[in-house]
Amino acid sequence: MSITVRAPAKINLHLGVGAAREDGFHPLVTVYHAISLYDDVTAVAAEAWSTPVDGAAYVDLASVPAGEDNIAVRAGQLLAQRHGLSRRAALSTYKSIPVAGGMAGGSADAAAALVALDRLWGTGTPDDQLLALASRLGSDVPFALLGGTALGTGRGEIVEPWEDNGAWWWVVVPSEVGLSTPAVYRHWDALFPDAPAEPPPAHRLVGALKTGEPLRLAAALHNDLEAAAIDLRPDLGALIEKGQAEGALRGLVSGSGPTCVFLCAGAEEARAVAAGLAAEHPVVLTAHGPVAGAHVLPDA
């Protein structure tokens, strides 16, 4: 028996950051948005953990941790521990979410593994308990379970579904060179030493989502980390300018980067922007959102 679960990439429509707390974490107010780039995880009972990985040609599969360093395995171990089980599984992953791109591909894999193994083992874990396990794995994992559009607080791990009346189209441009999330946060700390303890709220963004109007959403997109990411990587700023010149309503660094995303007026406009950027960038993807969180795929 095998169970395959699909989980989406995320982008941050709003990312407000507060000054670092004593424990080193930055409080966040973010609006997560799930888009139609996915990783699929297939779970099969096995005597030992294994993590075979395949994926789209543009995904750097060599950067995906193997064995017990893989977050999907850690998710399985946590679920087994929660239910007092000694079971293991082979977790085969097909990745379409860029690696180390600020789109939470690892978190998607962890969420997919939790759902797949819960179904495979018949443990019937309640949703609130799955979310609690997910929060122990990483700040973005609970949202990968939830999907859609959601407000995230705390370190981003406290998620609440949010009203979204739009059908949004995006162009996604990953980078061939990674950008360290801790480095971006450290640089943000250096750029904004007097940042307030409380992150800026997402009121404007939330209001734009309710209207379903692309121009309203474009004007409300916000990322506190963007300045730090662009200061470290000026090429990201140039990419955003190019995408907007090609017709995107707005370009934005996704999370801590280095992936950049571009909101477009519709599907046709997204294809046109993608074509304009493809001349200079080897990987340019189109996607729509919001889409569902981690969910079991029907048998082929």
Rank of each mutant, 00 (worst) to 15 (best):
D127F: 06
A104T: 08
G18P: 10
V29Y: 00
W188S: 07
G147H: 10
A220W: 04
V284Y: 08
T93I: 15
A278Q: 15
S50Y: 05
E280H: 13
L137C: 04
A300W: 11
S175I: 11
G154P: 06
H281Q: 15
L217A: 12
K210M: 13
E246W: 01
A287G: 12
A20Y: 02
W121E: 07
D164Q: 05
D127T: 15
H83S: 01
G255Y: 02
L130C: 07
L285W: 05
E241N: 07
D299L: 14
V5S: 03
A144I: 00
G212W: 10
L91M: 08
G152D: 07
G257F: 04
S175Y: 12
V44Y: 06
A220I: 04
L277F: 10
L236S: 04
V173F: 03
A197H: 08
A279S: 14
A7F: 04
L130D: 01
G293A: 14
I35G: 10
F143H: 11
R87A: 15
V172E: 06
G251V: 00
N12M: 12
G276S: 08
R271E: 15
R119N: 03
V41M: 06
V206H: 09
P282W: 07
L37Y: 03
R21F: 12
Y32S: 10
Y32L: 11
A111N: 12
G207T: 05
W162T: 12
L85G: 05
A100S: 15
L179S: 08
H281C: 13
L133H: 00
A197C: 08
V31M: 05
G289M: 11
L91P: 11
G24Q: 06
A113F: 12
C264Q: 00
A208M: 10
G178F: 11
L117V: 09
F143A: 10
A100M: 06
M1R: 09
A100R: 02
K95L: 12
G152N: 07
L249A: 10
S96F: 00
L78F: 03
T42C: 09
T4A: 11
V206S: 14
G257K: 04
Q81N: 06
Y185V: 10
S2M: 08
V17T: 11
S50M: 06
A300V: 15
A62W: 04
I97D: 03
A219H: 10
G212L: 06
G67P: 12
G122T: 08
V64E: 02
Y58I: 00
H281T: 08
E160C: 09
G251A: 05
G266N: 14
V99R: 05
A57I: 00
V273M: 04
G166P: 09
H83P: 00
E269H: 13
I11A: 03
A89Q: 04
E68N: 09
